[in-house]
Structure formats: C-alpha cells, structure tokens
Design a binder for these strands. Structure first.
Length: 648
RNA sequence: GCCGGGGUAGCCUAGCUGGUUGGGGCGACAGACUCAUAAUCUGUAGGUCGCGGGUUCAAAUCCCGCCCCCGGCACCA
C-alpha cells in the first residue's frame, strides 16, 4: 500500500500555477500507479492555522473560521476542475485532526523530546496580547541598530532570541511593548542529528530536496513549538498555548489518512506502507528535517520519498505574487475556458520535475496546438473518423510490430513514472502518436480503399489498436479528453489498466468520433498576455503631497573614496562629499560598479535617512539608483554642480 | 563568500558510470499527400557541446583553473 500526499495549500490565498507544479504531477503519478494495479491512497487538505490567517481574516472583518472556509472551498473547486482527484481532501481545523495532533505531541512529550523553558516575550498592553516575533520592532542589543523581534535584520544579522531585543514596540499599534515572562515549549530537534544524517542518506526522492536538507545536518537548533494565539491546535500540556502551525500541518497527513482509509495504521504505525510526499522546494526543510524527526520522536512510520518540484517562472521571470508574475488558476486559466488537460500536459511535459518550469502563454499555445492537438489529437481523430466512415465495424488483427511498439511505450512510461520522470512518460505518448501517424501515412489506407479493401481494414485495425493504447496510456495525464474520445470505441477508461493497451479485441465497433480537442487561437490567449503585461508594469504608488516630498533631504554628493566592504559581495563603502560634511554611506551596488569608477562621480543622496549598520559598517544616508532587473544604475546629474546642492 | 542546480544549433532540451557520423522537439526552408482541427509525412539548412589547460589511442562526458546564469543563506538604506 502506498500513501501519496501533496503539501497542504495554505488557506490564505487562491491557487496559482505555481501550486499546480506539485498537485498535477502527483495526481498523474497516482493515476498511473492505480492503473498498474498498485493500491494507493492519495490525500491532501487545507492548512488552516497560523498567524497570517488570523491577521488577514481580521483585515477582511472575518472570523478565521469563515476566512479559511472560503479558501478551503476554493481549493476543492479548483482541484476538481483540474481533475486532481484526492481520495480525501481535509482541513486542519477538523476535530479529528486536532485530536491526532494532540496525541502525537503527547507522545513526543512522553518520549522526552519536549521541554519547557521560560522566555521573555514582548507583550503589548494596549492590544493586550503577546506579540509574535515578527510583530515586534526594537533595537538590537549587540549593534544598536533597529531590528525585528527574531533577528537583527538591518545591523549585525544576529539571530535574536525572544526577549533579547531592546526597546520593543508593537508593530500593529505602535505602542511600547513590555516584556513578560512566559513558559514556552521546545522540541529537542538537536537530539535527532545523527538519526537524520542516517535517514537522509537512505531517503529516496528528488535530488534537489535531499541536497538541500543535507546542508542543515550538524547545524540544527531546538525548535520552539508553541505560540500565543487563540487560533490553532491547543497545546496538550498547556491549554493557554497553541501549537506552531508547522507542527500541526504535517500531522494532517496522518489525520487525513485516517479519514481516507481504514488501513491507516498499517501505513503510519506498522510501517507496512510506503509514504511519498510531493512538495514544493520551499518546504523541503520542513519535510526533510522537522517532519522525520517528529515522526521518529513520536514513534510513527517515516516517509520513504520526498519528491520536490522545481520552481515556476512566469514568462521567463521568477515567480512573484507581489510583482505580478503570477497566473491565477481560477480567475485566469479556468475562466478563459481552457481544457484542464492542456495545463496538465504542459506542467508534466515542459521539463524534468525538479527543474525550473517556465509558464508562457505563447509556449502554452504552441505546445498544445503542435503536440497535444496536431500529433496526438489528430491521430486519434483521423483514424477514428476514417474507420467510422468506411467500416463501422472493424475486424481486429494486430501485427506483432505494432504490439511491440505499444509495449515498449508502456514500459517506458511505467519506468519513468516510478522515477518521477513525468516528461519522459508524456514524451513517450507523443512518440507513439507520431509512430501512428507515420504508420497510417505509409499505409495509404485511403488509396487501398479503392483497390484492396481488406488490406485497408488491416491497416485501420493496427491503427485502432494504437489509438486505443494511446487513450489508455494518456488517460492519467489527460483524463477528461481521453474519456471523451474513448466513447468512439465504447471504452470505459476508468476501469482500464495499462495492460489493456495490449489487449486485442476481435472486433471493434467505431462510433462517430468527436473532435477531442479545440485549438488555441491567438485571440484566446491575447487578453491573458495583456493582463500579465499590465500587471508587470508597475503602477505608481499612492499619491504624496509636496510636504511629504519636502521631508526628504535629497542632495547631490560627490564620491571621494570608494572601497569594498570586506567579505561582502554587494556592498561598497563610500565617502561622499555633501558640501559641508563628508558622509560615509554604504551602498549595495558592488555588483555593477567598481570602486575606481565611482570616484569623482556625482550621485543623488538621501541625506536624512536614519543611519544603519550593514555588515557592521555604519551607513548614514542612501545613494539613489534605478533597479533594472536587479541591477543598480546610479542616478547622476546632467551638468557639474556643487556638492551638497539640494534637490527640489 | 558559502551551498545547490545549470551553461549543448534562433528557442526548449536528451546524452554526461568516456568510444561508431552529438539525438529529439519548436521555429525556418523545400517537397509529398489529402483520411484528418492547413492537420500529416519526407527531406534540407543550422552546433568551436561556456572558456582555458590536463589525463587518454579516444572527452559534451573524467580532472584542474576561470567566466556567466538561476535558487537558497549571509549584506542589497
């Protein structure tokens, strides 16, 4: 028995194409396994806890429960529209999940892997609550620069333990926070160092995830697993606390399995199954480090493979919601009315599962029109309609050569799927379709029709066998379309196994076929390209008043000296002449400017910026530059001016 | 800087435990065909396999050095 899971989508936003990079291949994987007769359980669910959900729900004036429900429904709707078919799709707010999580954590405690420690936490008296790290701002006790609650992000870069920060302020209301002592609980991750080293050396899956995880061995820290929140799974050892979301989320894999199958104990407790996690690379740490340690500590079975998908790019740009490099599944793809199979094929076929996938509407159109439609769809339709028009009923005799070809394709697919090589598997489909096209072309069946009808029928029989095999073998990738074409042969794909691709019927009755696919026209994708393009081009921010502008002390400076900040790649330490003073400013431009070429240059300086330390070097001001694809280009003046001149 | 992944024809990509003329797809061009959603089939053009060394009878493939790109961390005021 095999359990396949997908990383739980966080119920804080809609699904985009980046998400699908994990869910679609997992679904394809499961469908193939089921068709080769393996017993598989496929589960997933919404991840519903954590601070961001509470904060965002508040913003929308909703209760967290209402908020997550909205996205939970969205996920189910979209997955179903894409034929991603889980055996069970749960949510972490379910009572059974809470119970399982508590039981799990109690086990960890019984086994001695949880300890308590009193720490001082920032507390906002005005908001009347403890502040999670990222809602605290203050001063770094080491270098005295402004810092966040958990790290000195602007100064020395040190990780700050809760309570270390000086002059804490509540980021939400801006009031001064105070420190209050509170007991929190830690998971003894450091106890699993040796275990993880050993475990990771045997763990199967994609190299990208495993490499990433191996880096962390020997560098583990104990992990604070409780939070001050109302929303979440109550910590069983102390009711006033809630478990950190990354503790309860993966336990969802267990609690959802319980819902999906009576045999869940075989998988999670008896070690009688195989557990395969499909994830995005961004959560490799949690799945390769935290999760196995938790399972080991609580006495559950360990995953046998972690399959991490590569990144998704949009039109060649690194995926980024905030910058608009995103394609929304429901509002864009589905709304445009595209067949879900096109996207399934694209994602599975673009490149290897662990490499970067570029989503581009032009490539999408080309791949669909040239491969899915012109090669596969055309073969199926031409042979089905030829058979229907000229024969109706066809006596089937299949040459060994054809069967060998189908068998080779089938084996290629099965081998590839077991290694998570979805591209190789889907390429094999196109190769078989192409083989069919060549075979039919060479047979010249349309000429034989006039001279030797029996011979024509033999050619058609061979092609029908190929067509049937294609429908069966392509079904996991393109279930909806294959189901539709299979009607012409009276084939019920849902109950087929891959082996049936080789089964030869005595006679096939061909019904009138429908076009399996609709071509993508330029006007179908044109508005979507436009939407993307409009989102790319940055819209100007909020309006400011002239007073706002006047608060900025912008001046012309002349660079007197420039040198690299030691050990730094991006930073240059500049001494800039501002007329009445010489300022030391650190600028992140070393990748595009050498120190020498800067000397004597006129630059625009924001002179009244709050000083900060970067890599321990003090910076009093900021040099203005344009950011072109991550490269800094300095602003300068058109004619020589006196250093220190104010910019108005 | 460290870690990981890459650099193969205009574009995408296979090969990378060394060995017959470096495969495939898109695009381009020419021809064939008409059963098919102007689909299909055949053929042609196009490559210093990032750069420089080395090992070898033989290197895209192994070794050393360097350059560039992507991702993560450290520092992008």
């Amino acid at each position: 028995m095999k359990l396949v899971t997908c990383g739980l989508p966080y119920a804080n936003g809609k699904l985009h194409i980046g998400h699908l990079r994990t869910y679609i291949p997992a679904d394809v994987y499961v469908r193939y396994l089921k068709m080769i007769g393996e017993k598989v359980v496929f589960i997933c669910g919404s991840d519903c806890h954590g601070t961001p959900i509470v904060v965002n729900a508040e913003k929308e004036g909703l209760k967290p429960k209402e908020f997550i429900e909205k996205y939970h429904e969205h996920f189910q709707k979209v997955f179903s529209a894409l034929d991603v078919k889980f055996d069970y799709f749960g949510k972490t707010t379910d009572i059974e999940h809470h119970e399982r999580t508590k039981e799990f954590v109690r086990k960890l405690a019984e086994n001695g892997y949880i300890y308590k420690k009193e720490i001082e936490l920032a507390y906002c008296e005005k908001c009347d609550r403890f502040l999670p790290d990222r809602y605290v701002e203050g001063i770094c006790p080491y270098c005295k620069t402004p810092a966040r609650g958990d790290e000195c992000d602007q100064g020395c870069g040190r990780h700050l333990e809760p309570g270390e920060i000086l002059e804490p302020k509540c980021k939400i209301c801006g009031n001064k926070a105070v420190f209050r002592k509170q007991t929190h609980y830690f998971f003894k991750l450091t106890a699993f160092d040796e275990f993880l080293k050993e475990y990771l050396s045997k763990l199967s899956g994609t190299e990208n995830a495993l490499n990433y995880a191996r880096e962390w061995i020997g560098n583990l820290k104990d992990w604070c697993i409780t939070r001050n929140l109302e929303w979440g799974v109550r910590f069983p050892l102390d009711d006033s606390l809630v478990l950190y979301v990354w503790v309860d989320a993966p336990i969802g894999y267990i609690s959802f399995t319980e819902k999906a199958t009576k045999d869940w104990k075989d998988i999670w407790l008896e070690g009688k199954g195989e557990i395969v996690h499909f994830i995005g690379l961004d959560i490799a740490y949690h799945h390769c480090i935290f999760w196995p340690a938790m399972l080991k500590g609580a006495g559950y079975s360990l995953p046998s493979a972690i399959v991490a998908s590569g990144m998704v790019k949009i039109e060649g740009k690194t995926f980024s919601k905030s910058r608009g490099y995103v394609v929304w599944v429901e509002d864009e793809y589905l709304k445009a009315g595209f067949n879900p199979d096109y996207l399934r094929y694209y994602i599975v076929n673009y490149t290897s599962h662990d490499k970067d996938l570029n989503f581009s509407w032009d490539v999408f159109r080309d791949k669909v029109n040239n491969e899915v439609i012109a090669t596969l769809g055309n073969f199926l339709f031409r042979i089905l309609s030829f058979a229907w028009k000229n024969f109706g009923k066809v006596q089937i005799e299949v040459d060994q050569e054809i069967l060998n070809q189908i068998k080779a394709t089938k084996e290629k697919i099965v081998n590839a799927i077991k290694k998570w090589e979805f591209k190789i598997a889907s390429d094999a489909l196109m190769e078989l379709a192409s083989f069919g096209n060549v075979y039919f072309q060479n047979s010249k069946a349309w000429e034989l029709l006039k001279s030797d009808k029996m011979k024509a029928m033999k050619a058609v029989a061979n092609c029908l066998q190929i067509a049937k095999a294609l429908m069966i073998l392509s079904y996991p990738v393109m279930p909806r379309s294959m189901e539709r074409v299979a009607y012409a042969l009276g084939l019920k794909l849902e109950s087929c196994s891959l082996e049936d691709a080789l089964k030869v019927d005595k006679e096939l009755e061909v019904r009138k076929p429908e076009l399996p696919f609709k071509k993508i026209e330029e006007e179908d994708i044109e508005p979507l390209k436009k939407t993307l393009f409009e989102r790319f081009s940055e819209k100007s921010e909020l309006e400011v008043t002239i007073e706002d502008f006047k608060r900025l002390d912008l001046r012309i400076g002349k660079v007197l000296c420039a040198e690299r900040v030691p050990k730094s790649k991006k930073l240059l330490k500049l001494i800039v002449d501002l007329g009445n003073e010489k300022r030391q400013i650190v600028a992140g431009i070393a990748e595009n400017y050498s120190p020498e070429e800067l000397i004597g240059k006129f630059v625009v300086v924001l002179a009244n910026l709050k000083p900060a330390k970067l890599m321990g070097v003090e910076s009093k001001g900021m040099i203005l530059a344009v950011d072109v694809d991550g490269k800094a280009i300095l602003l300068t003046v058109d004619k020589e001016v006196k250093p220190g001149e104010k910019i108005k």
